[in-house]
């Protein structure tokens, strides 16, 4: 059994989760504070990939990053780097598709954060940046953690946009989900089932780890009041 799809899927999911973590938090924080009209508009833009079919996202990404398109051509000319049909092309797809999960969960957490806590911290002598990481983030950790896990799980299982922008090349761009499809299409049901089990096992381990972490936090803090 060639383990490349596992390695590639984990690599893509981890990189895109790292990108989404910061981008989602940044977007959620500023949208939560934005005026109502701006908030409504940005909310639609940031949530759109969640409701669009992944193939539509893939199509739009191809239109943007394809080698005959302005951005794709520019990057190819400047850095001699192709943005499609490589393993990192899948990162673009997973970032776009998974971003709304992180953004929406983090935004909910930020909106339920008690602003008096930030004010109290300010009166004790710290600027907004410090308070954001030391007060706001720990208070919103459950939402942030949930968003991160959801984004990771979504990135790990992404198929539609990934197959359009990265394709399926064994040993180069194959991920678990594209491999399962190809194996099923070529009637290799036994191997396809094995990859399905691998995917389920990874997702279950991630979810169990998060639950364990949460329970340990809760026990450690006894019955600390939620923010």
């Amino acid at each position: 059994m060639d383990w490349y799809p596992l390695y590639n899927s984990l690599r893509i999911a981890l990189i895109s989760t790292a990108v989404i973590f910061f981008a989602g938090i940044f977007a959620a924080y500023y949208v939560a504070k934005a005026p109502r009209l701006v908030k409504g508009l940005l909310d639609v833009v940031f949530t759109l990939p969640l409701v669009l079919p992944p193939t539509v996202v893939g199509y739009l990404l191809l239109r943007l990053l394809g080698p005959t398109r302005p951005l794709g051509t520019l990057i190819l000319d400047l850095f001699d780097v192709k943005l499609v049909m490589t393993w990192w092309s899948a990162v673009f797809a997973t970032v776009v598709v998974s971003f709304p999960l992180m953004y929406r969960t983090a935004r909910g957490a930020f909106e339920s954060f008690d602003p008096d806590l930030a004010h109290a911290a300010q009166t004790l002598g710290r600027s907004n940046t410090w308070i954001f990481w030391r007060v706001r983030m720990p208070c919103c950790r459950q939402g942030i953690l949930a968003g991160t896990v959801l984004a990771f799980a979504r990135a790990l299982g992404e198929y539609g946009a990934t197959s359009m922008i990265a394709g399926y090349t064994p040993g180069r761009t194959a991920t678990i989900s594209t491999t399962v499809y190809q194996l099923w299409r070529t009637n290799n049901d036994a191997l396809a089932f094995r990859w399905v089990m691998v995917n389920i096992a990874i997702s279950a381990v991630v979810l169990m780890a998060v639950n364990l972490l949460e329970r340990r936090n809760r026990t450690g803090r006894k019955e600390a009041a939620p923010c």
Binding site: D114, L117, A120, A121, T123, G125, A224
Partner: peptide
């Protein structure tokens, strides 16, 4: 944050974490 003024809220605003 540079004023050094203490402020107490009705709900105390202690950091829960």
């Amino acid at each position: 944050h540079q004023r050094n003024i203490g402020y107490l809220y009705q709900d105390f605003s202690l950091f829960p974490h």
